[in-house]
Amino acid sequence: MTLTLEWMEWTLPTAIFFSTIFLILVAMTIWQTVAPSIERRGFLPIPTTPGDRLFIGLLGSAYLFLAWLALTDFTLWIMLGIAVVWMIVVMRWG
C-alpha cells in the first residue's frame, strides 16, 4: 500500500497557507516552552493566552478576507497586509 496525497488535490497557495499556520504553531509552542506566558487582559473582552489571541486573530482574518471578497474588487494583497497588521495588533494588545 502506498500513501499518496493526490486525492487531496494540493495547490501551491494552499500548501503555503497551511505550512505558514503549521510553522506559526511550532514557533508558538517553542516560544511557550522557552518563555511560558500567562493569561492577561487586553482590549478583547476576555482574558486571553497567546494561543487564544492567535485563534481570534486567524478567525478574525478569515472574516476580514470574506468581507473583502464580498464587498470590494481590489486585489487580495492589500487585504493580506491588513490581515498581518490585524494579527500583530491582536497578538500585541489583544
Partner: peptide
C-alpha cells in the same frame, strides 16, 4: 478540511483533473 480548502480554489472534474480558479 485541508482537502476542502484545496477544493475551494479549484474547478475539479475528477481525480487529478483540476484547474486553479483562485477566489
Amino acid at each position: 478540511i485541508m482537502t476542502v480548502v484545496n477544493y475551494s480554489i479549484q474547478d475539479i472534474w475528477g481525480p487529478g483533473q483540476s484547474i486553479f480558479v483562485g477566489t
